[in-house]
Nucleic acid binder design. Structure first.
Lengths: 345, 345
DNA sequence: TTGTAGGCGTTATCAA
DNA sequence: TTGATAACGCCTACAA
């Protein structure tokens, strides 16, 4: 591609008959350093030449790029983002609009296996980053090396160095399970992605066990179906439950997407939800209310989560706080939304 | 935030006892200009200092940023991306992985009302852009001003200047409608987003009419429910149809999300799908097969669409073709996937 | 109030 | 095979 030379600050200066410094001043809101008439001339020139500053150049000198990285997990197998999961896309969408509102752009990226979170941050001179669903053991030390403000979403990395937004997953797991128990269920299956140490899923699992214990129900490992956070796995588990576990009357799926699969699996095995088996999900993605039957689930405000993360990040970036000063932890409230997949026994 | 000074090419040069030029050579794969031992020394230094190049600086001198803009439509009302729509997120996800594979990063952005597509491109020195669902009248001229390679997805801007990837929407509309007609339906409603000149929706609408005409069925404007591409509108239309249009036996919804709403609306009006009313959708987003009942729809390979767009773009970027030379048009094939929302009369 | 000039990190030209 | 050095576009002391 042959590009015509871009319009630079020099062109503007020449056009307005002033120095580049003057132009730069008005560009950076320091018009008090320039006489009103000059300001006007410069504004005029900018308009006429349709001048747009080069952020790369700015990034170089100001050491700030107005760029924020958003890093989302990748599927286990492929190197593809799991943006298809509405849970993530809804967050990203909200992050983007909040950032744009403040003059920042968003780089959306996964991280290649073996590659470092650091790279993109240094390469692009990111002003900050939002990282979703990272486990403590992963890149932990490395992450602190990056030396840019980082907001962690849904992560149990317990370090005041990072700001965080998340939910009380343990409580969520507890709420869901208790909801089922309160409705007379005793044999409650858990269908879930892999339970990794200090991951959100582990917390929900812990909540599940706590509710069970509190109700005096024996915890039965055979009722735990653990594999991956996907519709497909939910489907398999649903079939397995419907076919091989007549004692189970309810299932707690740790994500709505999984719950959809579970329900489908149950139905295809000739049983009904909630008549034969009740199902409760987690997240309340926007699809959950349109599912048939509409899904009873633990609701978290996903959009708010995204917005909060962006706000927290902007706050750190724009305040010139010294490094590592008491970051914040924002907790999004949880609630049960009752729809039609759970019945009382 | 206080940042420690970054490691620069100078540090590496000093550490290796060579000039920055030498370092730059090995960085840019021109090691033939440097003696093998020197190359090794430099590699060593890079590793030891953990040096990562600054893309801003590169962008400045090379006039190439390794950055691609992906622009997706915003909802009418808010300034938020419609990334929640799985149709878009699935594409974005595929675009991202393809780009990353080639060393590019992706800036995801909407465009503020009144703002120009141009701005971000110039600001960030984008190497290219992928724009989804833009209408000809919008920013048409402006877009050509940008002077970077642009791939349009789902756009009927008919200008060889742009590369495009899309589908034959007219044919898709035709297929869907004919599918219903072939199964004995005559009174077929169309539920759709706003029919704008030369938008994908208009084409689908045209296909709908062609199929009708071909079958000798009178086109009845009262059967067209036109508003927005959303579950919510589908729901309303579904209710309206079930309640007020006993003659209608089938509906063609121009997007799966809309079809979901339609089905829900119909069901809540006490009618059944497909027993009372058949529904066919469009897109085959991954949710469609998990919907209950699984949705019969016009399938397009969304992931492929995203990948193709990225490939096309990379091709143009990396070939140093002169400006505006015959761009390509990639057409993703369409097919009907039969599931359980259409019955034969 | 204005302008000059050095420097941000990199690449590429040109001598050596 | 090497290494100075001048750009790239911008910002900001510092001087005028």
């Amino acid at each position: 591609m042959i590009l015509k030379r871009r319009t630079t600050i020099k062109d503007v200066a020449r056009h307005a008959g002033v120095s580049t410094a003057a132009v730069s001043y008005v560009l950076n809101g320091k018009e008090n350093r320039v006489s009103p008439e000059t300001v006007e001339k410069i504004r005029e020139a900018i308009r006429e030449l349709n001048y747009i500053p080069d952020f790369s150049a700015r990034s170089l000198v100001k050491n700030a790029s107005k760029l924020v990285g958003v890093i989302i997990p990748q599927t286990e197998d492929s190197k593809q983002l799991i943006l298809e999961n509405p849970f993530y896309s809804e967050m990203v969408s909200n992050i983007e609009s909040k950032l744009r509102e403040h003059g920042y752009h968003l780089i959306l990226s996964g991280v290649d296996k073996g590659k470092s979170y650091l790279d993109i941050s240094v390469q692009r001179n990111l002003d900050g980053a939002i990282i979703m669903g990272i486990y403590p053991e992963q890149f932990y030390a490395e992450l602190k090396e990056v030396k840019i403000p980082i907001v962690l979403i849904d992560s149990y990395i317990n370090d005041p160095y990072f700001s965080k937004v998340g939910i009380d997953d343990e409580q969520g797991g507890y709420l869901a399970t208790k909801y089922l128990i309160d409705r007379g269920h005793r044999n409650i299956a858990l269908v879930t992605g892999s339970i990794r140490k200090d991951g959100v899923v582990e917390k929900r699992f812990l909540g599940y066990k706590r509710a069970l214990q509190e109700a005096g129900v024996f915890y039965n490992p055979d009722c735990v179906f653990e594999h991956s956070v996907s519709y497909t796995y939910g489907y398999e588990a649903g079939k397995a439950i419907a076919a091989g576990h007549p004692e189970i009357t309810a299932v707690f799926a740790t994500a709505d997407m999984v719950a959809f699969g579970v329900i489908q699996g149950i139905k295809e095995s000739g049983k009904d939800v909630p008549q034969d088996i009740s199902v409760i999900g987690f997240d309340d993605i926007f699809l959950s209310h349109m599912f048939v039957p509409p899904l009873t689930t633990v609701r978290q405000d996903i959009a708010l989560k995204g917005r909060k993360a962006a706000e927290l990040l902007l706050e750190i970036i724009e305040s010139d706080e010294p490094d590592g000063v008491d970051r914040k932890m924002e907790e999004i409230p949880l609630s049960i939304v009752e729809r039609q997949t759970v019945r009382s026994l």
